[in-house]
């Protein structure tokens, strides 16, 4: 999953961590998703979140169970270029919220290992 996103900033707070992320619209995945009609694949966003949690915990985490993952708005990487990922957690249960300005893109609750 090359060149899908780039982390531009990380803000660590007491009870959450925020990643400022740039979506890279020249990523080759858009050749197939979909031809002439780029939409960020929801699965790529799931992997992006796994990588951000792994980076924060400084180890390779695995997703054991996705309790719920809702995609609330399709993401066009040419329009929603900069997105904000907010992560909160309680032990091994993590919640992720993906936003572009005021637009809610995605919400995830997952058990990790």
């Amino acid at each position: 999953m090359q060149n899908y996103f780039q982390i531009e900033g990380i803000t660590k707070n007491d009870d959450n961590v925020c990643y400022q992320i740039a979506l890279l619209s020249d990523c080759e995945v858009y050749e197939g998703h979909f031809p002439g009609h780029p939409v960020a694949p929801g699965a790529c966003s799931i992997e992006m979140i796994r990588r951000c949690i792994s980076m924060f915990l400084e180890r390779e985490v695995r997703f054991l169970k996705i309790y719920q993952c809702k995609f609330l708005s399709p993401v066009n990487p040419e329009i929603q270029k900069r997105i904000l990922l907010t992560l909160t957690w309680k032990q091994d249960i993590w919640k992720a919220v993906l936003m572009c300005d005021d637009l809610l893109l995605m919400r995830l609750k997952v058990a990790i290992r």
Binding site: G42, I46, L64, C69, K70, F71
Partner: peptide
């Protein structure tokens, strides 16, 4: 037809 994932629910991963 073009379609999207709307929601993933109780998706358990046992092995990669």
């Amino acid at each position: 037809q073009i379609g999207y994932i709307g929601e993933v629910k109780n998706f358990e991963v046992n092995k990669l």
